[in-house]
């Protein structure tokens, strides 16, 4: 299972909660104080960032991996 991260940038205040709890270091707060998805391919869709985002700015949608589909 992979995750597709979407950010509502106008809501993000750059508090860094999502990047702190991300187990794969996918996210980082940039110098403008907004969250950036720096390694989207590493996302495992755990949803920790979305769960604790106090500003409802980050969302993770689960997407099935291509490989899994072909195997099935």
């Amino acid at each position: 299972m992979k995750g597709k991260i979407s950010v509502k940038e106008e809501r993000c205040k750059g508090c860094g909660i999502c990047s702190y709890f991300c187990p794969k270091q996918v996210l980082r707060v940039d110098e403008l104080g907004k969250i950036r998805v720096i390694k989207p391919e590493d996302c495992i869709a755990c949803g920790q960032c979305e769960l604790r985002c106090p500003d409802y700015a980050i969302f993770v949608d689960r997407v099935a991996e291509q490989k899994e589909k072909s195997e099935v």
């Binding site: 508090c15 909660i17 104080g33 106090p54 500003d55 409802y56």
Partner: peptide, 22 residues
């Protein structure tokens, strides 16, 4: 759950990292 928020009022005025949003 977004339907329960007043979209025109967001983002809220709480400080960055404030737990009230959660």
């Amino acid at each position: 759950y977004e339907k329960f928020f007043r979209q025109n009022r967001l983002p809220h005025l709480w400080c960055p990292g404030c737990g009230n949003g959660i």
